[in-house]
């Protein structure tokens, strides 16, 4: 299973201005019981997105039609908690390709990269700017360019660089995954075991 290539994306954003969104919120444990990597998107933010009777909660941003797009923007410390990769799959499966926050939990960050989602870490200030822009105009466009490692608030004209490990960047730009690489060095691994 190689990953989808990512080069550039221009999209509106879905704002979630909540801090410390943990993996139990992203996908509650009771939805982890799959043996295939399918259908997790429906349960993304399950307990916020749906009421107890299963009907959509109109207060939640994903149920408000004027907000849409392939970029999810969360508050500080996004993705804390468990190592469950299902959290990343759920976001990916729900159609997002980029997650923006001012801070990501470590495991979460590597999990999203491994499934072909791009984590974009920006300053608190820039993040606040995004939330302000979308609140005023939900149709505001943002551009994420992996090659130049920039995210641009098109309307405000503000652009910032983000960090990404250069190995991961290559993988994402080309759609390779880590296992392709590891299999290619099997001989070196066997030699290491003997040493």
């Amino acid at each position: 299973m190689s990953i989808e290539k990512f080069q550039k994306l221009v999209s509106t954003v879905v704002p979630l201005p909540i801090e410390n969104v943990d993996t139990d919120q992203i996908i509650p444990a009771r939805f982890l019981k799959a043996v295939e990597r399918k259908g997790f998107g429906d349960n993304l933010f399950r307990d916020w997105r749906y009421k107890k009777d299963g009907t959509p909660n109109p207060d939640f941003v994903m149920n408000q039609p004027h907000f849409s797009g392939r970029i999810l923007v969360g508050g500080k410390n996004f993705g804390s908690g468990s190592s469950r990769e299902h959290a990343a799959w759920a976001i990916y499966d729900a159609g997002f390709r980029v997650v923006v926050s001012s801070f990501f939990a470590d495991i979460f960050k590597s999990n999203v990269l491994n499934c072909g989602l791009l984590p974009v870490q920006v300053s608190e200030e820039f993040l606040a700017g995004i939330f302000e822009t979308v609140e005023a105009d939900p149709t505001a466009q943002f551009e994420v360019d992996l090659e130049s490692q920039t995210i641009t608030n098109v309307k405000a004209g503000a652009s910032v660089k983000f960090d990404i490990n250069s190995y991961k960047k290559e993988c994402l730009l080309n759609g390779y995954d880590d296992i392709d690489f590891l299999i290619s060095i099997e001989k070196e691994i066997a030699a290491f075991e003997k040493a």
């Binding site: 190592s83 990769e85 299902h86 999990n111 499934c115 995954d177 296992i179």
Partner: peptide, 8 residues
């Protein structure tokens, strides 16, 4: 702890 891709 690792994610499922890493388990693979």
């Amino acid at each position: 702890g690792i994610g499922t891709s890493e388990v693979e």
